[in-house]
């Protein structure tokens, strides 16, 4: 494993770059960030459509979510890889295909997380906001979404982690991400598949584990800030209503 790491680590991390296309872990991370960065707003949009008071928005978004969630990711990748070029009549790069597929796939899952987050908030939150004269949209933006997204942070992070792992599906349409790079290293070495793929797993694990830990740290910080420590001086002594 040491030998693999010393000679082939660069190709696992950045692919052929700078002598060829960027690949390896770098491309995996780019795919993940792009995928999630685009899926996040789309997922929120889908979630809002799913709970919208208008059937015009609710019905199609529900269908999209159910269909996407009911099909394996690899099928979606194949469909977009073979069908989209036929439909639009021109070639689409494997990279674009993968990003778009990941975005649609992740958005469907994320929308369910966001929707659950919104629907699990007490009704009183909406009633209080509306009673203050806030519109539906304003209530959603200022009151419901911030709480829902915060409450759902652990689920959203695990979704991000799973996006990182799911970029490995790019292997089947020859996107030069981490798994593809490992495949190439394996072909070059021929005799050490166990070591190569153990290294591959280790890299995925390290990245995902580090991210999960960061998420926990962020989560803990917000929780502490909200729970707060009340200084002693703010005791009831200074409370004029209680005194009165």
């Amino acid at each position: 494993m040491g030998e693999i790491l010393s000679t082939h680590l660069p190709s696992l991390l950045i692919g052929q770059y700078p002598n060829g296309p960027l690949g390896g872990l770098a491309l995996t991370l780019i795919l993940s960030v792009l995928g999630l960065g685009l899926a996040f707003p789309l997922g929120i949009g889908l979630a809002l459509c799913r709970i919208a008071p208008y059937a015009v928005l609710r019905v199609p978004s529900t269908i999209v979510v159910y269909v996407v969630r009911g099909v394996p990711l690899v099928m979606l990748v194949f469909w977009s890889y073979f069908l989209v070029p036929t439909l639009i009549g021109q070639a689409v790069s494997a990279f674009t295909t993968l990003v778009v597929t990941l975005v649609i796939y992740q958005a469907a899952y994320m929308s369910e997380i966001v929707r659950a987050g919104i629907e699990s908030l007490p009704r009183g939150q909406t009633e209080a906001a509306r009673s203050l004269g806030m519109s539906y949209g304003r209530t959603m933006r200022s009151i419901l979404l911030p709480q829902a997204l915060y409450n759902m942070l652990p689920s959203l992070i695990s979704q991000f982690v799973s996006t990182i792992k799911e970029t490995s599906i790019g292997y089947v349409i020859s996107v030069h991400e981490l798994t593809y790079s490992a495949g190439q290293v394996n072909s070059a070495l021929l005799t050490k598949p166990l070591q190569v793929f153990a290294t591959l797993s280790l890299i995925y694990f390290v990245v995902c584990f580090a991210l999960t830990r960061c998420a926990h740290a962020v989560d803990g910080r917000i929780t502490r800030r909200r729970a707060g420590v009340t200084p002693l001086v703010e005791s009831k002594v200074h409370d004029p209503v209680l005194q009165g």
Binding site: P122, G124, Q125, E127, A128, L132, G133, M134, R226
Partner: peptide, 30 residues
């Protein structure tokens, strides 16, 4: 609704905002 104040049994303060932010929300946003 801005002309009718409503106080709920369950308070329904917005938990992601401090006391003063809760109070200032409607005046600034509405």
């Amino acid at each position: 609704r801005t002309k009718v104040g409503f106080v709920f049994q369950q308070f329904n303060l917005f938990p992601h905002m401090s006391a003063i932010e809760n109070v200032c929300l409607a005046p600034t946003k509405v």
